[in-house]
């Protein structure tokens, strides 16, 4: 059972505000889902050779490319000119 305090703690870690109704609702619903996840506790692993992870990632050259800087800046919520404003960090 996922207690309400646990949901609140996790919501805080995930930086999401939840209403008390949501905390209540998620506590019940996620407990049911976590119960379902218990299926994998005693999973019967195949007695075969584990496949080696096929890596398909390749790195590209480390070179500067334009990245739509001005377009990206336009999406910023607190902006004046080239100054991107955020709330005080410290």
């Amino acid at each position: 059972m996922l207690k309400k305090e646990e949901i609140e703690k996790i919501a805080n870690l995930a930086k999401i505000k939840l209403s008390s109704a949501e905390v209540e609702e998620f506590s019940g619903q996620l407990s049911v889902v976590l119960d379902y996840f218990q299926k994998i506790r005693n999973y019967d692993f195949t007695k075969g050779k584990v496949l080696s992870e096929e890596s398909i990632s390749e790195l590209r050259l480390d070179e500067v490319r334009g990245f739509f800087e001005s377009d990206l800046k336009e999406q910023f919520s607190g902006r004046s000119g080239n100054l991107l404003k955020v709330k005080k960090v410290l």
């Binding site: 996922l2 646990e6 949901i7 996790i10 919501a11 870690l13 995930a14 999401i16 939840l18 949501e22 998620f26 619903q29 996620l30 889902v33 976590l34 996840f37």
Partner: peptide
């Protein structure tokens, strides 16, 4: 709601 639910679930299983 569903997005919040999954973020909570995902944060939990990684915590």
């Amino acid at each position: 709601k569903e997005v919040k639910r999954r973020i909570i679930m995902g944060t939990y299983v990684l915590s």
